[in-house]
Amino acid sequence: MPKGRVEIHEKYCKSCGLCVAVCPTKVLRISEKTNTKGYRPVEQFKEGCIGCALCAVTCPDAAIEVFKTEE
């Protein structure tokens, strides 16, 4: 499987959960942290990201950047 990772700009995240719902490998979740707007930002909580970027494609706040490791 390709290997990827996401970087979540927590200050923009509004914890709408759309990215969590569309992630095919279910590596995202809403965290226990609180950002300056009072939302609980999404986090990648385990390995298994494949760098498909579906989370970023669906994020309404452009809060997600995606990296992919090329072999």
Binding site: G4, R5, H9, K11, Y12, K14, S15, C16, G17, L18, K37, Y39, G51, A53, A56, V57, C59, P60, D61, A62, I64, E65, V66, F67, K68, T69, E70, E71
Partner: peptide, 28 residues
């Protein structure tokens, strides 16, 4: 092996701005 950014915040998106839209709004 090298890591590349494949999805970035758009350049023309106003830097360092958070929208007023409700969570999950399709406008964003």
């Amino acid at each position: 092996m090298s890591e590349v950014k494949i999805y970035a915040r758009p350049v023309s998106w106003m830097p360092d701005v958070s929208s007023h839209y409700c969570p999950g709004c399709g406008h964003g």
